[in-house]
C-alpha cells in the first residue's frame, strides 16, 4: 500500500550524469530553472527540449519514469493552462458562452503549460540521477559559505538525511498500524471527509507517540556515537571536483547564458 510511494525517487545508474558532482548538478538545475523564466518566445524551447532529451538518453532513464513524475502534477498544469486560455485579453478567436478564447490566450496557455512541464521534468532529472545522500552532501557544501551569516548548513543537511532515513520506517509503521486497526474494523476508505478524518485519529496518535520515542532514542544513539555537530567532522565520501565537473559546468554556463540572452536578442 503505502510502501509503493517513492519519495525523491532515485534511479540508480553508472552514467556520467550519475557520476557528476552533485554540486554541479544542483547549480545546473538552478540555471535551468532561471533560464526558463527568462525565455519569452517559443523557439528557445527547442534548446530546452534538446537539453532534457540529451540527459534522459545519456543517463538511460526510462521515459515512463519521467511521465509518472508528471502525473501527480497534471492537475496544476491543467489549471494553469485553463486560466491562461480564458483570462488573457486580446484578439477574440472563439466565444463559448461567458468564456472567450483569444489568440494571445491560446499562445500564452500553451507557453505556460510547457514551462511547467519543463520545470518539473528538469528538477526531477536531478533527483532521478543523484542519490539522496549525494544530494544532501551537495546542498550542505553549497550552503556552507553562508554559515558565516548564521545559516545552519550542516544541521539542515543532517535533518534532510534523517528525514530520508526515517520516511520508509514511518511508512512501514503506518502500514502496520493501519492493518491492525482495519483488522479491528476501522475504516479508512469510506464515509465523508469528516468521518474519514475522525477515523484517522487512532492511526495518527500511536504514530506520533512512536515518532517522538524514536526521535528520543535516535538522539541518544547519535550522542553515544560522539555526534557533536558539523565542526571537525570528516566524511567517508568527500565530494571532489574532477575535470569532467569543470567541463560540464563551464559548458552549461555558456549554454544557459545563450538561452537567457535570447530574451534580449529577439525583440
Amino acid at each position: 500500500m503505502l510502501k509503493d510511494i517513492t519519495i525523491g525517487q532515485y534511479f540508480p545508474g553508472t552514467s556520467i550524469i550519475h557520476k557528476l558532482d552533485p554540486r554541479v548538478k544542483i547549480v545546473v538545475v538552478a540555471m535551468f530553472i532561471a533560464s526558463l523564466f527568462f525565455v519569452t518566445s517559443f523557439w528557445p524551447y527547442v534548446l530546452i527540449v534538446a537539453f532534457i532529451g540529451t540527459i534522459i538518453s545519456v543517463a538511460k532513464l526510462p521515459l515512463k519514469f519521467i511521465i509518472k513524475g508528471l502525473k501527480p502534477l497534471m492537475f496544476i498544469i491543467l489549471i494553469t493552462f485553463a486560466i491562461n486560455l480564458f483570462l488573457t485579453k486580446g484578439e477574440v478567436l472563439l466565444e463559448l458562452g461567458p468564456l472567450t478564447i483569444t489568440k494571445e490566450g491560446l499562445r500564452q496557455s500553451v507557453f505556460m503549460a510547457l514551462r511547467l512541464v519543463f520545470l518539473i521534468t528538469g528538477t526531477s532529472l536531478l533527483t532521478l540521477t543523484t542519490s539522496p545522500i549525494a544530494l544532501t552532501d551537495g546542498i550542505e557544501r553549497l550552503l556552507s559559505p553562508f554559515k558565516k551569516i548564521g545559516l545552519p548548513a550542516h544541521e539542515l543537511a543532517m535533518m534532510m538525511t534523517i528525514a530520508l532515513r526515517f520516511i520508509p520506517t514511518l511508512l512501514e509503521e503506518t502500514d502496520k498500524i493501519m492493518k491492525a486497526q482495519m483488522a479491528r474494523g476501522a475504516d479508512f476508505e469510506s464515509g465523508n471527509i469528516l468521518n474519514r478524518a475522525k477515523n484517522l485519529v487512532p492511526l495518527l496518535v500511536p504514530l506520533f507517540i512512536n515518532a517522538f520515542r524514536r526521535a528520543d532514542e535516535l538522539a541518544t544513539a547519535m550522542e553515544a556515537r560522539c555526534y557533536r555537530g558539523g565542526d571537525g567532522r570528516t566524511r567517508l565520501n568527500e565530494l571532489k571536483f574532477r575535470s569532467r565537473d569543470y567541463v560540464v559546468l563551464a559548458s552549461m554556463v555558456v549554454f544557459f547564458g545563450l538561452i537567457i540572452s535570447t530574451r534580449y536578442l529577439v525583440s
Binding site: I133, T161, R225
Partner: peptide, 17 residues
C-alpha cells in the same frame, strides 16, 4: 532507532566521522 544514514557504509562511518 540507532541507524542514522541511508546507506549501510555511510552509517558505519558516522561514529568515526
Amino acid at each position: 532507532n540507532q541507524i542514522v544514514a541511508t546507506i549501510v557504509e555511510e552509517d558505519v562511518a558516522f561514529g568515526p566521522e
